[in-house]
């Protein structure tokens, strides 16, 4: 567990809670334990055994699911002999038909490009660690960006939005769910699992161990 410091120690072993600035002496918690900030309860360290392998596997799954979902049928509507089918990209581009091209780009980024970028960045950072190799150039910056992008990756919110939309059209027409719909539903579970395995401190520690901790000098 992390303990509060009272005397000066090497900076190397110190961590400060990002939420409240409390200073701790970092030590890997025991098996299945987490280190939590004593005063603000922010989770500081939560390592999971074999996490690197699992995160890379899940990131690959996200790449495949997202990469395919964009190209396969998403939803199809049928009513009174008329039918219309739509893809994920059509959904985002629907705003551009109403002169809201900016919003189309934002929606496309939130549900496709940012989740894709995050998955690629995580693979770039973690795959070499998985094979006990040296991190690739820029791995540190890549990991920082992947964490910065996290709140903007909204595939799971999109899925809930699809659910609400389906209820809205339920008494208007019959809707057929395409493969892309199920892929996005699977994506939600994969993303939640991945974020659960990801412990920032452990990744930074692993990057430091492979390259030697960066020093302020």
């Amino acid at each position: 567990m992390a303990t509060t410091l009272t005397s000066d120690k090497d900076l190397e072993d110190l961590i400060a809670c990002p939420s409240c600035d409390a200073l701790y002496h970092a030590a890997a918690p025991g098996h299945g334990e987490r280190a939590v900030c004593a005063r603000c309860h922010h989770v500081l360290i939560a390592p999971i055994e074999g996490a690197v392998l699992r995160i890379v596997a899940l990131a690959l799954t996200i790449l495949i699911l997202l990469g395919t979902a964009v190209f396969v049928p998403f939803l199809k509507i049928e009513a009174q002999g008329l039918s219309h089918s739509t893809s994920i990209v059509d959904a985002a581009l629907s705003f551009s038909q109403a002169h809201m091209i900016g919003l189309s780009i934002v929606v496309l980024a939130l549900i496709v490009f940012i989740p894709l970028a995050r998955a690629m960045l995580l693979i770039y950072v973690l795959a070499p660690l998985m094979f006990h190799r040296l991190p690739l150039t820029g791995a540190r910056m890549a990991f920082r960006w992947s964490e910065e992008l996290r709140p903007w990756s909204m595939a799971e919110i999109f899925v809930l939005g699809v659910g609400v939309a389906l209820v809205k059209v339920a008494d208007l027409a019959r809707v057929e769910l395409g493969a892309a719909f199920w892929m996005f539903a699977a994506l939600v579970i994969v993303t939640v699992l991945q974020d659960g395995f990801l412990c920032r401190w452990s990744v930074w520690k692993a990057l430091d161990a492979r390259t030697g901790k960066a020093t302020s000098e």
Partner: peptide
Amino acid sequence: AVLSALVQ
């Protein structure tokens, strides 16, 4: 987005 793409 979904509604306006789908309901056409």
